[in-house]
Simulated assay, not measured.
Amino acid sequence: MMKKVVIALLCVTLGSTLYAGDIFTSKTFIGLEVGYAEVQGDVGHMEGDMVVIEPDFKGDNDVEFGVKIGAQNDQWRTTFIFDYYDSSDNDQNIEKGYLTLDYFVLEKESTVRPYIGVNVGYANYESSYVDDSGFLYGGQAGIVLEAGEMINIDLGYRYTLSDADALDHIGSIVFGVHYMF
């Protein structure tokens, strides 16, 4: 399972560098993110001697954490993100690896820069009596605040669908801090 995730993310990351035409004008960054996510996925429980799976269980909201690495220039940002979501209330956890591509709507001279983007990735979803993996795809929008020459702050919304049978979608409000180098 982990081998599939690593290979898929490595292929996506290496593939994205092929079209990064002006790589020498890009700034590289690392960052952390924290978000509040709503997950819709299957959960299971025991009724007597039988396992009962509740499809598309709704209402699981909790905090997710992530690390980022990426590059950006005046118009585009490409980011690799690894997020972890764990809800003890409904015994759901998700490990997600994303590759995101964002387009900055305003020019570099602005301190606040809105963006729109797409994301692709892979996730492992686990819950009581449920263990499933699948590809992710979706979009995001938000704003980046230039807090200095080396620091920017990101606030956005990411909506992601999954092709896994047990995981339908994830919606996250995400706050991130990036250190540019």
Rank of each mutant, 00 (worst) to 15 (best):
I7P: 00
R113Y: 08
I81G: 00
M2L: 11
I53Y: 09
C11G: 05
E146F: 01
Y125E: 02
I170L: 09
V52R: 02
D74Q: 13
E54K: 07
L136T: 05
S87L: 10
M2H: 01
I94Q: 01
K27Q: 15
I170W: 05
Q75T: 15
N119A: 15
V34N: 03
Y84W: 11
K58A: 12
A20Y: 09
L99H: 01
A164V: 08
P114M: 07
L106G: 10
V174L: 09
D89F: 11
D91H: 12
G176N: 08
W76C: 12
R158S: 12
V52G: 01
I7C: 01
H169I: 11
I23H: 03
F80M: 13
I23P: 01
A164P: 10
V51Y: 03
K27F: 05
Y137L: 10
A20H: 05
G121D: 01
T111D: 13
V174W: 01
K27S: 15
D22M: 13
H45Q: 10
L136D: 00
Y179F: 14
R158H: 05
T100Q: 06
S127C: 07
G59M: 03
A147W: 03
G139L: 12
K96R: 15
Y129I: 11
G15W: 01
L155N: 08
I153R: 01
E54R: 06
D168K: 14
M180V: 12
Y179L: 14
L99P: 02
G48M: 10
A166K: 05
T25V: 14
D56I: 07
S87P: 10
Y179R: 00
V174R: 03
S127V: 11
V112S: 04
I151A: 03
A20P: 05
F104V: 13
S133V: 09
G35P: 07
I81D: 02
G117S: 07
Q140V: 11
N61A: 10
I153V: 15
L99N: 00
N152T: 10
T28M: 12
V105Y: 09
G97L: 12
G148Q: 01
I94A: 01
K27N: 14
V39R: 00
T111G: 08
Q72F: 14
G59V: 06
G31E: 13
D62G: 09
E95M: 13
T17A: 12
G44T: 07
G31Y: 07
G31Q: 06
E54F: 07
K68T: 07
